[in-house]
Design a protein around this nucleic acid. Structure first.
Length: 188
DNA sequence: ATGACGATTTACT
DNA sequence: GTAAATCGTCATA
């Protein structure tokens, strides 16, 4: 699932139909009960992790470090509390909305490239917070996933036949060896 | 009610 | 490379 989400469009629709969207460029898989890095590891159920037991295709948004949000797509069913963390987006639509949410402070070209490079940064860019937790991504008007259009739909050169790289996961040192599992997937 | 921590980001040395 | 920011979440009491 984490691999297949690469290249798809994550779409945020704000009140009034205003859209912010971007190409999913980096994902990370969390393998549920048997993954020490997964919030649902060993079957732990709390108010927060209960979201992971929703049917596949729901959103899992959580709050970390006192200031950041992270967005996941729930995978698996009740017995498979798994998720894919979306780690980076290349913004393709909605710059006016992004700029507006930042008080119309100008962004350099470099800042535009990296405005959604990171799980928390992408949530800030798309105005994703806990109010978007537990939503059905197949029916929600607020947040959903689309097939890529235009240039985004073309195959990516230079990364071999699969079109992505697999790398160790980030920010989960407490999980020991599991951090080294190649479950982080990066597009060109 | 309390305390420790976090699937991060940023700024600064 | 180190550190601070900052609060929801959860285990403990």
């Amino acid at each position: 699932m984490a691999q297949q989400l690469l290249g798809k469009q994550l779409v945020r629709q704000l009140p009034g139909g205003l859209r912010i969207s971007g190409e999913i460029a980096e994902t990370e898989a969390y393998l549920g009960l048997e993954d020490p890095a997964c919030h649902s590891f060993s079957g732990k159920i709390t108010p927060r992790t209960s979201t992971l037991y929703l049917p596949a295709g729901h959103s899992y948004v959580y709050f970390v470090y006192g200031m950041h949000h992270c967005f996941n797509v729930v995978c698996g069913d009740q017995s498979q509390p798994e998720a894919v963390l979306i780690r980076a987006l290349r913004i393709t639509e909605g710059w006016e909305q992004i700029l507006a949410s930042r008080g119309h402070e100008p962004l350099s070209p470099r800042q535009r490239e990296t405005v959604a490079s990171g799980p928390a940064k992408l949530c800030r860019a798309l105005s994703i917070d806990l109010s978007l937790n537990r939503l059905d991504l197949t029916t929600s008007e607020q947040i959903f996933i689309e097939e890529p259009r235009g240039a985004e739909a073309l195959p990516k050169p230079g990364l071999g036949p699969l079109g992505f790289m697999a790398l160790p996961r980030v920010g989960i040192d407490y999980a020991g060896d599991a951090a080294l599992w190649p479950l982080r997937f990066v597009l060109a």
